[in-house]
């Protein structure tokens, strides 16, 4: 992974030529920063935001609904960029649980690793994790896209309903358990598939999707290396004679 991470340059989040607005969480309470990002940001069109000393604080930049570049200079705690709309958020470190949970649009990029439930229930937007992601990555996904440079932990994409997850490394146990319409692409090994998940042949559309998502994340792999995991749809309807894994 390290070699990959070193070679990554960030193309998704464009550098802002103007001086950014800087908040130092060592000095300014989070509540003020978030309130600025909700209420005052619209008066500062075109400005970038830099948040210093996050030190693992929870709920940084949650609920932003504005086209703005936000750079968080360090590690974040729970729910960084939660429910993001429109903003491009760059986390220059590791992210705690539920990064970009319920994201609607925009892009959230984690330079390091992401903890559990990354991108949980995201309805739109793109989450890029350059390192590994923990358990339950993309759980309950509802339309967002997730690209993970490294591996994902067990129970990833659990009950994922829509959206796409590209995993450049390996996947843990029970990948895609009780999947609905979300599709997972895996480059490495899959420890085990969850109930109702199956490996399917890649179509031209799948190759194209993976190529596009890899390009957005700037990961140097070929879509030819990926396998497709999707729902076998055997749990879509109750059926006593099928010995369903309910």
């Amino acid at each position: 992974m390290d070699s990959v991470m070193d070679s990554v340059t960030n193309s998704t989040i464009k550098a802002d030529t103007e001086m950014p607005i800087v908040f130092d969480l060592a000095q300014t309470p989070l509540r003020e920063v978030n309130r600025f990002l909700h209420q005052e940001i619209s008066q500062h069109n075109g400005k970038s935001i830099r948040i210093l000393n996050p030190d693992g604080a929870h709920n940084i930049a949650v609920g932003v609904d504005h086209e703005v570049n936000i750079e968080i200079a360090g590690h974040t705690g729970y729910y960084a960029a939660g429910m993001n709309q429109l903003a491009n958020v760059m986390i220059l470190g590791n992210a705690g649980p539920g990064v970009a949970e319920n994201m609607m649009s925009g892009c959230v990029q984690v330079k390091g690793f992401a903890s559990v439930s990354a991108g949980a229930s995201a309805q739109g937007g793109l989450l890029i994790i350059e390192g590994n992601a923990g358990l339950r990555c993309g759980i309950s996904l509802k339309g967002g896209d997730i690209v993970v440079g490294g591996s994902v932990g067990s129970f990833s994409a659990f009950m994922a309903q829509a959206g796409r997850i590209v995993i450049c490394g390996d996947a843990g146990d029970a990948l895609g358990d009780s999947l609905y319409e979300a599709v997972i692409y895996v480059r490495g090994k899959i420890k085990s598939l969850g109930a109702d998940a199956q490996i399917e042949p890649m179509t031209d559309a799948d190759y194209q999707t993976v190529t596009e998502l890899l390009a957005q994340a700037n990961f140097p792999y070929s879509s030819k290396e990926f396998r497709r995991v999707a729902s076998a749809k055997q749990l879509y309807h109750w059926n006593a004679d099928d010995n369903q894994e309910y």
């Binding site: 989070l30 509540r31 978030n34 909700h38 929870h58 709920n59 949650v62 609920g63 729970y78 729910y79």
Partner: peptide, 13 residues
């Protein structure tokens, strides 16, 4: 606790 704080932060308390 943190989830509740997230919802509070999101809706400015």
């Amino acid at each position: 606790t943190i989830k509740i704080q997230e919802l509070r932060e999101l809706t400015d308390w």
